[in-house]
Design a protein around this nucleic acid. Sequence first.
DNA 1: GGTGAAAGGTCATTAAG
DNA 2: CTTAATGACCTTTCACC
Lengths: 155, 155
Amino acid sequence: MSIDRLDGRLIELLAEEPRIGILEASRRLGVARGTAQARLDRLQAGGVIKGFGPQVDPAALGYPVTAFATLEIKQGQGADVRSHLSTVPEVLELHTTTGHGDMLCRLVARSNADLQRVIDRVVGFDGIVRASTAIVMENPVPLRIIPLVKQAADD
Amino acid sequence: MSIDRLDGRLIELLAEEPRIGILEASRRLGVARGTAQARLDRLQAGGVIKGFGPQVDPAALGYPVTAFATLEIKQGQGADVRSHLSTVPEVLELHTTTGHGDMLCRLVARSNADLQRVIDRVVGFDGIVRASTAIVMENPVPLRIIPLVKQAADD
DNA sequence: GGTGAAAGGTCATTAAG
DNA sequence: CTTAATGACCTTTCACC
């Protein structure tokens, strides 16, 4: 789905100040409320905006340690490993990838010591041959989308 | 910050149906509207809920390819690499890590061919010694937080 | 609990592709 | 001719005091 600059500015506005609402957003964009409403509806229907769920910070919940684990999987065990990992709350996301590893997952833990427990739980499963973990020290660029939205709007 | 089961259920509710609002949420939780409001305020003040910004799907924007790049950095060039990567819209997040690589970044691209352009732009920088990229094929567990919230609420 | 405000819907009109 | 934007009006619902 392609978006124009108005869509882009609307997304930026809502990202910066989600509380302003459609009416205020339309005022700031200099368009009628119905227009802003129609753009938002279209963005949601097109899947560009998946929702407005709360953004929860794991660190504030007591899980300040993040790590990425690269997993090597026994052939044919992919599905089992997937369902195993989906039962571990500390596994925040899981991808299957090309390259040396077969899967990459993002983990959080209460501490470095707790991370050992999480990793043991993750890799304590038959289908996983090997795991290599990288602990996150800093996060210079937190998950962001606005620069990409701007680029997509300018195409 | 620690949360209880009511906080947890409130977060779950808002994650599933962000549009319901505080009043409807309080009804479903079986508590007074002021209680739900107070809980939400506390969660936001405590940083557990960082906001309600729109969740944008890069794939719907025309960037269906995701990859993770592990970067090895020349000593002392970390800050330069950081600011370089922050200028690339396709870099959605960047972490500094322990382990063999020094940094891990999440990339998106319009296609596998386009990914080459993105990687060239990312690694076309003096401070980066080596890069190894893993292209994401599937995403069996998309970024999630609810299981962790439930666990934190049950502690 | 009351009140001002916003969301969400519909409509006719107008502009632009 | 088709699509989109606009301003008007209306009703329900919510957020805030």
